[in-house]
Design a protein around this nucleic acid. Structure first.
Lengths: 366, 366
DNA sequence: ACTGTTTGTGTAATCGTTTCCACACGGAGG
DNA sequence: CCTCCGTGTGGAAACGATTACACAAACAGT
């Protein structure tokens, strides 16, 4: 591979001049510039980022660490991150931690050793253990989707408490008395918040919470399927279920189907996260759609401010509101939709809407 | 951030000794090793990959460039790649080219300038234009999913011809006479192969191809939806449809639903790619499931051989066989499944099965 | 005692950039 | 005519690792 010296020799100038042409900084005569560009082209010169990064102490890379790459929620977040990053000349490298703290730790170390300019991460664990290195190494960091106690970094997340409350009260308003929550791992902040919101939603309608109808565990299809199965096989099963993410909704559907139960006729089902396209396949899931793309763009914007040091204050927290999309699985819209997209959008209550807005307004110290 | 010199000073040895301890190469006394490890720990030393890479000319990074990150087919491929790479001490960085040749070109340049050790890519364009730099820069490269004519790189792909033939003849065998193909962009090898296989499948059953029932375009939901809509609104619409990937199957479903048509009662539908979990939601899509994970592991294995120079021969091609999973959308299994997973697995014809096997056996020059 | 090998360590060159500094040249302003 | 400043350029010192080389000590075999 050609180096800057090769180009310099070919163009009859010094390496310094080549560097100035490539980077566009400093004075270069039109004639030299022309020569250099021609030489670079001829030699297929591609600057070595490692050498550049070594000298400049900036890699131009941003890491995005997600717990589950096959989950379209996170890939949508990633598109948001990427769009903003690319617009600012940064590149995104994606890492899949697989909900494993060990993998997460390994990725964090990889990213620190690669000297990425910043990290956006949806942490897998409850403690900041595997993330401590980011703080120690002073790498600008933004948490996305999942918050973490006592971790000094900006956070962009959806309001899971309000979201769960919206879903639970939607079911309660439809007349359900026995509502179950199929939750994710309580190690994550979102799971804990969703439980709290769920309880609040029932309380709002004067319903008691039957602790036996609360279940938590891995965020995956299979886990939810077996837990819902257990729930259904007891006597006095629920008449409605809130699933804490899209995968668990599918696991729930499977458990229901295995028992010949139909949605929403026999049991109502609502969940967090839009499955995007798939949610519009029968039974047309009623979902609380989180603003995944926006979470990505916001997170990257906050990160940029940290990287460029245009903001250096206390950790900030951005809370975004989700939208309730009422389709058929909750039993509210019984007739099969024909021409329409089969979906009625209803915003969450006005109180939570108040927190939507431009960054400057929604950002608050915490 | 602490450097190797800092650690050396703290430990009372030379940088060379620190390097030997960290890399585990060369002679180091137990006492020195102990000192170095203690110092590295105390200073939170994380080696600088850029400096290391600059000297060793290896980054320890492998790039995986996929055209559509939200497509679970590609994320599954990525898990295969990652598992093999990690087992060999390499890290994977993922890039999303968005089916855009321009983005692809930008990523290729980024990866070359990052001096990644190798690249695995599912190319977006028909020509090797945007990939030429990989060849010029002599970066080990493996194509996955999509082949490319006259491009000197190993390829791992599924047998799309046989796959499409399997799907088409499955529908023909069920008695369908007017079968449509909703295809992807003919710029990609897979789209062209799927068309060829589709024609072969019909021919096998003595059916003529109605060219008006062949449609190609973008691999996305919306595009397929409008194309299928146009197809249905003509007179003499098809009685069965083959969709060339999972997204287009969803687009097809939408178009059907908008017209009040039911699957499989009014129109049968089968498609390429398993939607994983979502495919098991009604209408339980009959799919040709491609071995995505295996494609990833195979691709990475071939790439490893190139990176380590343990193989330096002519470009190889690995062709994997897919499986037909018969569910309900094709109309073959009319009763709703209850206890079972709602799926009957049928392998593609024996002839294509013959090509399954360990790498060594399936690899063939091309 | 001499040679040769194994073990252990440090010095310094090197990888490919960027960038500080010095310097040279013109033209403008005094 | 002398400065000063805006341009334009090159030399050389970093950046932080690896590694070739030199050297020294310890030990074995003759």
């Amino acid at each position: 591979m050609a180096t800057i010296h090769d180009v310099a020799r070919e163009a009859g100038v010094s390496p310094a001049t080549v560097s100035r042409v490539i980077s566009g900084r400093g004075y270069v005569s039109a004639a030299s510039r022309e020569q250099v560009l021609r030489a670079a082209d001829a030699l297929l010169y591609v600057p070595n980022r490692m050498a550049r990064g070594l000298k400049t102490r900036r890699s131009g890379l941003v890491a995005l660490l997600v717990p589950e790459i096959v989950n379209s929620f996170y890939t949508t977040v990633s598109r948001g991150v990427e769009d903003v990053a690319n617009a600012h000349g940064l590149h995104v490298i994606l890492g899949n931690t697989d909900e494993s703290v060990a993998k997460e730790r390994a990725y964090v170390e990889l990213m620190v050793s690669t000297r990425v300019d910043g990290v956006i991460i949806a942490p897998a664990g409850r403690t900041a253990d595997s993330l401590q290195l980011l703080i120690d190494a002073a790498v600008p960091t933004v948490l996305v989707d999942r918050a973490m106690d006592a971790f000094p970094a900006d956070v962009v997340r959806a309001d899971s408490v309000a979201g769960a409350e919206t879903l639970a009260s939607h079911l309660a308003a439809l007349g359900h008395r026995r509502i179950a929550l199929v939750n994710g791992h309580l190690d994550t902040s979102v799971a804990r918040e969703r439980e709290a919101g769920f309880r609040a939603g029932l309380a709002k309608h004067g319903l008691d919470v039957d602790e036996r109808l609360l279940s938590s565990g891995a965020w995956f299809v299979a886990d939810a399927e077996s837990r819902v199965g257990a729930l259904l096989d007891k006597n006095d099963p629920p008449s409605a279920i809130v699933a804490a993410n899209n995968f668990m909704a599918i696991g729930t559907l499977r458990a229901l189907r295995a028992r010949g139960l139909r949605v929403p006729d026999d049991i109502a089902l609502v969940c967090f996260d839009d499955l995007e396209d798939a949610a519009e396949i029968d039974p047309f899931l009623t979902v609380l759609a989180q603003p995944a793309y926006t979470m990505g763009t916001m997170a990257m914007q906050l990160l940029l401010e940290r990287i460029e040091r245009s903001f250096a204050g206390e950790p900030r927290e951005v809370v975004l509101t989700s939208r309730l999309l009422v389709r058929r699985s909750c039993g509210a819209n019984t007739p099969l939709p024909t021409r329409s997209a089969g979906c009625v959008a209803i915003a969450a209550d006005e109180s939570s809407l108040a927190r939507i807005g431009p960054v400057a307004e929604t950002v608050a110290g915490r």
